[in-house]
Nucleic acid binder design. Structure first.
Length: 319
DNA sequence: AAGCGGTACAACCGCATTCGG
DNA sequence: GCCGAATGCGGTTGTACCGCT
């Protein structure tokens, strides 16, 4: 024996709402309210609709202050951050985006944002994506307003535990010109049409924060940045602890070679390919992989306070 | 101009949770 | 505390629209 239906399906209209139905529902709720009873509402309002359908139509479309249209970068960032933290709990995410509905956010995520994130993964032109770090488009503006950014030398400083990489990627179009005008170029490498310019690597070798990278990758239209707090090698070689990023632009490295850019992980000479690798299908990610992709990214580290705030709110809600 | 495939989004469905008697 | 009804939520589906051939 199954659950009893919420309404008489045979006498209920389904499918898209007409403007007349919208007007009836809107007028009724604005004058009478919902009365706390959606099941009885359609009959009272003169609608041949299921109560659930009325509720959905009102919440997602008709109620005042609903925002439709393009999502802003800020909204993207909030959605990504929250998704990383709490997963696909759209109603909670929607509560942090005034005017947006859970349905709206869910659709936006499934149809656009997920793809947008994947496309932001560098080297996508290789038809592969990178499991390491990816930075939302607003990373620079956020970082410059955060303690991670030092305007005196245009570096992103973080205070990670030793040997934890805190780098990220950013599209060139979003990068302040003063960073790109940095004249402390260390080395460049051309490979096919690709040019990589490395700024200030290994500065302060041996003393953290050290090894601050700013890698300008013209081919991928990206700035790659980050640092590692330690540069001593576990095997005593004292070289190539720099997270494999140097491997990428170092001499003699095949462009198609896997490389390591550990994010929230440890780099060592024996572990160069385990933390970062390419996959063949950038869009074929599981939710867990997407969460990992977002969570391993620099901006998310810097947004921990925000996530904590949300988690606290959740606790208040649930307990 | 018609057909087709891809995309975006509104709406539905069923399960889980909450509420009230 | 139990049970049935109502509500909330997230996954999925249906369809309108658009661009391409």
């Amino acid at each position: 024996m199954g659950r009893s239906p919420c309404c008489d399906k045979a006498n209920v209209k389904k499918g898209p709402w007409s403007p007349e139905e919208d007007a009836k529902l809107k007028n009724y709720i604005e004058s009478q309210g919902t009365g706390g009873n959606w099941i009885a509402l359609p009959q009272k309002a003169g609608l041949k609709r299921c109560g659930k359908s009325c509720r959905l139509r009102w919440l997602n479309y008709l109620r005042p202050n609903i925002k439709h249209g393009e999502f802003s970068d800020d909204e993207d960032r909030i959605i990504c951050t929250l998704f990383t933290s709490i997963g696909s709990r759209w109603s909670i995410i929607a509560a942090h985006l005034p005017g947006r509905t859970d349905n709206d956010i869910k659709n936006y995520w499934n149809t656009k944002l997920k793809k947008k994130l994947m496309e932001m993964a560098p080297f996508a032109h290789h038809k592969r994506s990178y499991h390491g770090a990816i930075c939302p488009t607003t990373a620079n503006s956020f970082l410059q307003n955060s303690s991670a950014y030092h305007s005196t030398n245009n570096n992103y400083y973080t205070t990670p535990p030793a040997r934890v990489f805190t780098g990220g990627f950013e599209f060139m179009s979003n990068i302040p010109s003063n960073i790109l005008e940095n004249t402390n170029s260390f080395t460049t490498r051309s490979s096919n049409s690709s040019t990589l310019t490395v700024f200030q690597p290994q500065e302060g070798h041996g003393a953290g924060p050290a090894q601050n990278y700013q890698v300008k990758d013209n081919y991928n239209n990206l700035l790659i940045f980050g640092n590692e707090a330690s540069c001593s090698s576990s095997d005593g070689s004292g070289i190539d602890e720099d997270l494999g990023l140097l491997n990428y632009f170092g001499s003699g490295v095949d462009e198609n070679q896997k490389f390591t850019l550990p994010a929230n992980g440890y780099a060592d000479d024996q572990n160069k390919v385990t933390n970062g690798c390419f996959t063949e299908n950038p869009l074929d990610y599981s939710i867990e992989e997407i969460k990992q992709l977002i969570s391993t990214n620099n901006i998310c580290n810097n947004l921990n306070y925000f996530v904590d705030e949300i988690k606290t709110e959740e606790q208040v809600l649930y307990y």
